[in-house]
Design a protein around this nucleic acid. Structure first.
Lengths: 136, 136
DNA sequence: TATTGTTATACTCTATAACTATA
DNA sequence: TATAGTTATAGAGTATAACAATA
């Protein structure tokens, strides 16, 4: 039973995700972001009508944990809380935030391309559909 | 740019790993294990001459964090610290631990098979090599 | 001089419960 | 009555620094 762990998809998934999140965390950290913040910003760039709760549901972040996260993004001047009614707030990018996200998307795109290059060509196109089949 | 996150391998990797670790964590938790403990036990089942430091290097666990982990496994009666010389300790399974690991390996095997079944057949065989290429 | 096991500690990330104001 | 935003807090999991003993 040599190399048992290397043959378990679950373990490989964990190690691969840890490696990638570590690398991406360093890259984004150099630019003042955390990974989860980057995900929120990219989502908000896509859609400017989402509330904190909706973002949380989409990204699997607890509503309660969205608060300090958005506070940080707001304090940095990248997002704004825009009232939709007396209860809900839409999260929208500021002009400064939009510029930051453009830079961010570019950095991430470069990293993701490099990531795919690590995967042997015959497996490359299968990675994303396989991963999405697991959690979606 | 709709569904941007769904097209990023890094994000998909994170979500898939979180989903799988959550499920596996529940399954193992019902049996009194944490995921990392299970990994240690499987590795020790494979090789009975490894020290705490070597296990940590193999599984990417800090030496300092191995201590409470092994303490728990030892307190449960599943492993034993066996002196190799005046400095190093080999981690070996007890008889009770060996039985527990056999059960554990079976539970994990069932889960991993089910996990692979979620992946469409045309992508299935590519998952493990693609993941291992990313971190190994 | 480097390594092993260990202790203590800090930090990040995430989960839970409860409260309020509004739909 | 359910939902949104919020507060406070607790728990994992992981990282760092330091130390004694031994290789």
């Amino acid at each position: 039973m040599t190399d048992l762990l290397g043959r378990l998809p679950g373990y490989a998934l964990r190690r691969a995700a840890n490696a990638v999140m570590g690398e991406l965390g360093d890259i984004l950290g150099d630019r003042g972001f955390r990974i989860t913040e980057a995900a929120v910003l990219l989502l908000v760039q896509d859609r400017s009508d989402l509330t904190s709760s909706q973002i949380g549901k989409t990204l699997d972040i607890q509503r309660a944990n969205m608060v300090p996260l958005l506070n940080r993004l707001e304090a940095a001047g990248w997002i704004r809380r825009k009232p939709l009614d007396g209860k809900s707030l839409a999260i929208v990018l500021t002009a400064e935030g939009a510029a930051k996200v453009t830079e961010l998307a570019s950095v991430i795109e470069v990293y993701e391309q490099g990531l795919l290059q690590r995967v042997p060509e015959e497996h490359r196109d299968h990675l994303l559909p396989a991963l999405n089949a697991i959690w979606r």
